[in-house]
Design a binder for these strands. Structure first.
Lengths: 313, 313
DNA sequence: CCGCTCCATACCTCTAGAGATATCAGGCGA
DNA sequence: TCGCCTGATATCTCTAGAGGTATGGAGCGG
């Protein structure tokens, strides 16, 4: 790429003169005297190396060189005016692009409402939304390929990142409908000791995985994982086939499968957190906007299960 | 249209830094020291009103405002580089647009060869070709809406315009095939006195019209025009129907109609001229190129008619 | 011929910015 | 801790150009 040769002020004067085809009128339109305009055009012509205007008695016309330069000058001036407006809008937080990563299960809880509210308040902002499990979200936040992460069980020791809990929800047992424990309203964790488990891999969400395993340990057993699945929807489908049972965040009740029963657990004090994450020193105003939207938008899903939701045997 | 706010040199530096994301490397690439680059970017940021780069320990990244400005800056710089190259090419005669007007009958003579040769020699030049009769061509040359005119019988008294004869051709009589005179190889003009004529209106080509009328007058009669037609092809079609006879430039023999006979005339000394016209003081190098091409490209159509061309009764 | 219009040229002042050198401050790694 | 890397800041010189005023030359019309 070479250095630009033509000054924009001169190109602007050129365009105005090309429209007026009269040095006096163009000078008045530019708010200057005629001789300085004459000099400006001369300087531009010297830089191009050819006359851009033909000066005849009684009229000024464009030369072929001038006719070639005019559309390019117009386009460039317009490009820059647009780009400057867009840069200012982005800088002030009225426009721009916000890149959001989210864990799949959050599509069942906070994501829809948050996106709706944000779009309503900031229609000029383009949202780039990508599904990613927790660990990849943390990496993407650090390397700046996303601006916002929506995830579960945020880490406590990320130096560059900050997190804020949006909501907490209890766990539920996920059982095949025909499972003997499905007949109960609530399941004691110890009762699950004899059943194989279907769980997400630790790598997908280390803290959530460890929390679930920890609950089982507190109940006196280590879950025997028969199958891993990255998505909670897949977990439910495998449970439905009778492959095993699971422990999951309560919001997955929204996944409605005939052959799956969701039951409250005892002890029921444990909760899993949903959080928004961002780079601590990120000054992007859109990030601040989204955090503000999250703070005003806190749906409560800690209500008890409603009758009719589960497939009763 | 407002004045441009951002200097191109600063935008150029911005683009290079956005590519390198390292002040030292970008400065080296620009051929300056790092502090001046730092100052330049600062000045640009002050003009935009927002930081364009985020400076963190160990790395430089674009802000949202910077990300919005980058494509616009790139486009504008490219537009101007292209426009400047096009202006220079047009100014030096390597490229640009040439607007040519031509009388329809010249499509039967000089036009195809001229266009072919010119395109071969100047492939970068766009040709804008419009069919116009002689009088509109003269007006368009004067008001600069065409650069070149190809016409017949150029005027002798146009102050701003110059003309050069490309070729001359004799006249032929245009007769219905069943006309008694069609049996002759050559027709004396006086023999046409009793027949109605089909001619182009004087307004379409005053001098050609007057030349034809003058030939008849020299032969002792004034042609009785039964019908006018602007195109020679239409003239031939009307002659074919038996509506009348005509006198026309010899090249219209190329219009092949079964029911039309073309015959040489006596006296046969008169010739009609085909000329190229241009504005005398036009400095457009493409005009010079075309005039040069015309000078090297002089097909000779003054040969006698070849057997088999005419419909014999 | 004279007055007016139109664009060019000459000369002037002022300013912004381009680029330089010198230096500082912060962070990182050995 | 020290050395190195990186970007910022301070200060300086120089130049191009932006815009002004005054004037000149050409052409046109009354």
């Amino acid at each position: 790429m070479e250095r630009p040769e033509l000054p924009l002020a001169q190109l602007h004067a050129f365009v105005v003169l090309a429209e007026e085809l009269h040095f006096g009128h163009a000078a008045a339109r530019l708010g200057i005297a005629q001789p300085p305009l004459s000099q400006q055009i001369r300087r531009l012509e010297d830089k191009v190396g050819h006359a851009l205007f033909s000066r005849e008695p009684g009229r000024v016309t464009l030369t072929p060189a001038g006719r070639e330069l005019l559309p390019a000058a117009r386009r460039a001036l317009a490009d820059l005016a647009d780009g400057l407006a867009a840069a200012r809008a982005a800088g002030s937080g009225r426009a721009g692009r916000l890149r959001i990563g989210f864990a799949a299960s959050l599509a069942l809880t906070v994501l829809p409402g948050l996106l709706r509210d944000f779009r309503q308040r900031f229609p000029g902002v383009r949202l780039d939304i990508r599904e990613m499990t927790t660990a990849p979200q943390l990496a993407a936040l650090c390397d700046k390929s996303i601006d916002i992460g929506l995830l579960r069980e945020p880490p406590a020791d990320e130096a560059e990142l900050s997190f804020r809990t949006i909501l907490t929800e209890p766990f539920v047992a996920v059982l095949p409908a025909a499972h003997p424990l499905a007949a109960q309203r609530t399941v004691r964790l110890a009762q699950l000791a004899g059943s194989p488990f279907v769980l997400l891999p630790r790598a997908a969400g280390p803290r959530l995985h460890d929390q679930i395993v920890g609950l089982c340990a507190a109940a006196g057993f280590t879950p025997q994982v028969a199958q891993h699945a990255v998505e909670w929807q897949t977990v439910c489908a495998l449970v439905e086939t009778g492959l095993g049972v699971s422990l999951a965040p309560a919001s997955i009740r929204r996944i409605r499968l005939k052959g799956v029963a969701f039951r409250g657990i005892e002890p029921g004090a444990a909760r899993t957190r949903v959080a928004v994450g961002w780079r601590t020193h990120d000054r992007n105003p859109l990030v601040a906007h989204l955090l503000a939207t999250v703070s005003q938008d806190r749906p409560d899903v800690s209500q008890p299960p409603q009758p009719g939701h589960d497939a009763l045997p």
